[in-house]
Design a protein around this nucleic acid. Sequence first.
RNA 1: GCGGACGUGGCGAAAUGGUAGACGCAGCAGACUUAAAAUCUGCUAUCCGAAAUGGGUGUGCGGGUUCGAGUCCCGCCGUCCGCACCA
Length: 843
Amino acid sequence: MTDQRFNPLAADQRWQKRWAESGVFEADDASEKPRSYVLEMFPYPSGRIHMGHVRNYTMGDVLARFRRMQGFEVLHPMGWDAFGMPAENAAMEKKVHPGDWTRANIKAMSAQLKKLGFAFDWSRELATCEPDYYGQEQALFIDMFENDLVYRKESAVNWDPVDMTVLANEQVIDGKGWRSGAPVEKRKLSQWFLKITDFAEDLLSGLDELKGWPEKVRVMQENWIGKSQGLQFHFALSDQQGEQETIEVFSTRPDTIFGASFVALSADHPLTQHLAADNEAIAAFAEECKAGGTTAAELETMAKKGFDTGLKVKHPMDPSWELPVFIANFVLMDYGTGAVFGVPAHDQRDLDFARKYMLPVTRVVAAEGEENTPIHDEAYAGPGKLVNSSLLDGMDVETAQKTVINKAESENWGKAQTTWRLRDWGVSRQRYWGTPIPIIHCEDCGPVPVPKDQLPVVLPEDIDFETPGNPLERHATWKHIDCPKCGKAATRETDTLDTFTNSSWYFLRFASQPDDKPFDPEVVKKWMPVTQYIGGIEHAILHLLYARFWTRALASIGQLEFQEPFESLFTQGMVTHETYKLGDGSWLSPEEVQKNGNDWITVEGGNPVKTGRIEKMSKSKKNVVDPDPIIEQYGADAVRFFMLSDSPPERDLPWSEAGIEGSWRFVQRLWRLFISVTENGDAPDNVDKALNRKLHQTIAGVASDIEDLSFNKAVAKIFELVNQIEKSDGSQDRNVAIKTLAYLVAPMVPHVAEEAWALLGEKDMIAKAAWPDVDESLLVEDEVTIAIQVRGKLRDTLIVAKGSDKQTLEDLALSSEKVQRTIDGAEIKKVIVVPDRLVNLVI
RNA sequence: GCGGACGUGGCGAAAUGGUAGACGCAGCAGACUUAAAAUCUGCUAUCCGAAAUGGGUGUGCGGGUUCGAGUCCCGCCGUCCGCACCA
């Protein structure tokens, strides 16, 4: 007698072991089958898997298993984005080596992933913190260096004087280091940069080709790249200032040039600095500007402030017209030229500024009939014709722009210019736990790349985190090395690469990982681009842009034959959970509360609890549910099924106890159906056409839903089928339907599916089975329900033979008692008949 | 401010312009049971009605297109996300 309950504790392990031993999920580079590369963003080994990971990898797994069943050779790898700050923080706090900490986390997390039964090709597992990975990354860096895609320049960084380290912008809180609390200083350091701006145009235009990407992500990248076209030109200073004879400005609205009423410099502009050198008031004002915050809220409320330098510039199109030069707090040094000309009538900031400093406001663009409407508090940024603009008068905005640009170019005071928001990517980090930059600094030869036969440049193990600063910098011996070119004593670069470089090419290394080079282009070509990439929206810009850049950069130096790494991208929603609070506002974890009737109370003490919003699981809100005990209690299949049910995958999924229990019950329900086959072996041989039809509709429907990643819809269809099977009488058709059901659920709940397979006498694994064929003839109903409407309102439904002709339908509709009652003798003006759908009577 | 997404029962949600609310959760009633769990059956948008294959209303709000609108168009309101003194 078969156990009436499915026991995941035993079954999960049994099948996970068999999958691993058989190597069934290992991808074959040499396969002749069509290929599919399913990739989920690899995790940072923080120590524990969280529900977001579970959801992400479940989605990818269903797709990977499904594609395998459909006959694809599937590459579905897993690895670890293993460099990063948390390991160094752990080293400082817990006195463990970052490597030990990271490797222990990887071990723990891979065990957790394995318990979920994901169909990963573990033979390709990689960790970016191991020399066999980062050494190859160093080789790629050198290739880029030698192809002029890498350069070094002085750049301002946030410097924490206590921790003696560079901080990322996110690590600066209220101007202080997030760890030390010390006021952060701006420091100039020599930093390595990758020339992503060389690819700005390609990265932008390439977005149009990414049809399989969410519109949202493409728009975000487009904004980030930030292309603006306009005119860069100079104003001649009336009096030369030191070396400076002119002020260079950039504008996207050269058409408004006759509306100019001032020129404004950034506080960091060279001319400002020149003036500040012998003018204390200017120096003080420039300092004041820099002190201002840069958060959105601060900018919102910050008043426009300026300082009149007393200098004048000549208007390029009318040398007799002089404009005052201000230093202004709203002009950014790192965009455009660090100087602008102000057109108050057509730019809100300029207008605010002009009102404050009593500068002229001249309308130069006007919509029809608005020519004489004065500008008050709102600048006009809309379309129209030029006015008050000498030779431009009467032109539309676009023509005026072209005219001014042509004039500037022919008279040699400016040229058409494209400006990007995108900056080159600074990759230097003054940290230990990252890829060492494979450069040697020689006094005579300058920066020299480490010869490739000396790679990898391995991180030293014997380091200390007792004293602040970069351990590589103060290591006794590591950085001392002879110059590979001249042999003279030299030093290694002690900076390491930004961790985003690690994730910029890992998908290539998954596809091919030879010992002697980063990848084999021939093998990579077979798998790439990634067919379906799945991950969180938080990587919409940085990671996805950097990976696109690396792919294009490597293509530009002949290492790859494709331009885009990810054919389709899917950004999944977060896993959320209700939050709980005590009366005093402190957060409570789900374990600390329980339901008491309709209210919530604390487990200990029974104090009243307020339920808060449903939010992303986070430690601070204490609403995290750890997957491990849940898997322990309900088994991998129930957890996986929950992740797929109900919410569409791109939306947030609210975690609930009731939900996981529902999934558990469904797994048991499936199991009871499978058992019923063994008990109904001698069921009658009569045909259950309705059930067969439902079965084949479900096979087709589930397949297309999974293909669309609409897992919630696939789940709903499976429920419908299960409901119908349960209601149907025992028959051989019913047994076939149940056995077929095992294939349909196999990608989602693989353990119970394998168990069923064994129960039903199959010797091999369902993981190797093919997706069932659809009997197309069964997809077509022979009877359909048609709606009878009167003036678009439903009055009756009729069941008719499929394909009934219009006249028949019309006659049937008219003979309906309910329809007659509604019409009540009124004249029928029009009859709309949609065959197999509806009849609409218009009276 | 700019850009994007979204708004449907108590909740998560379905719905090629064609019967709104499939499917799941929760809830209610019943069966089985000494009892509970599990399981099974039925009901469950809302209003009127004892009930009806009775009727009215209903997809954020206001208009429009259409024989017919959750879906398309215009204008609002709201929520969420991203970017932001970007010249």
